[in-house]
Amino acid sequence: MPLLALIFYVLAIVTIASAVMVVTSRNPVHAVLFLILTFFNATGLFLLMGAEFLAMILLIIYVGAIAVLFLFVVMMLNINLVMLRQGFTSYLPLGGLIIIVLLTELIMVIGLGDIDLNIAAKATSPIPYHVPNAEAIGRVIYTQYVLAFHAAGIILLVSMIGAIVLTLRQRTDVKRQSIDKQNLLLSEEVVELVEVTRSKGV
């Protein structure tokens, strides 16, 4: 499939290029926008592999929520990127070492050929064929894993309670308007007519 290969290479190159731009761009807003571009291309790569559920989730969660959150943070906090960059040269040797280690590992894994390409078929719960994988997940999430699914719901509830408990401040020194009380007031009680004598004041 030369067409698929072509699409793959285009997506892969754009992914890597925009990932590099995320790290190197001078404007933090540009960096976040490049991050979004990276996610979009990664989505395309997932689609090519037939993992359309992961592709959707990546778009919804990473682009829809996390990248937008980053954008808000970048815009609201006045982050000075020049300051952040100051340690770049001092971290370079350590970072370079990690890159070399990771690269060696990658080459060893590919070079030794110790990859079983049919591992998916050997799994105890293989990927169901003839079924889109969103549907395959839907089939188990409400049946086999219903308990774990509900546990996830309770985790979200607890984190919501936590966020409210830790941030809600009941302020007593603020004057608030109560519409009911306002409507129940009679004009005789609150309005006082005063006869003002000329050039004397009240």
């Binding site: 308990l147 774990a148 607890v158 936590g162 408990v165 830790l166």
Partner: peptide, 28 residues
């Protein structure tokens, strides 16, 4: 749920449920 977990997924979920509530309790 942690003591009754018999699956890695429920294991992780229950550990998280326990921990997140504890993080909030620690900061109460």
């Amino acid at each position: 749920l942690m003591t009754s977990a018999n699956d890695l997924i429920l294991l992780y979920m229950s550990v998280e449920l326990q921990s997140i509530a504890l993080y909030v309790i620690a900061t109460i």
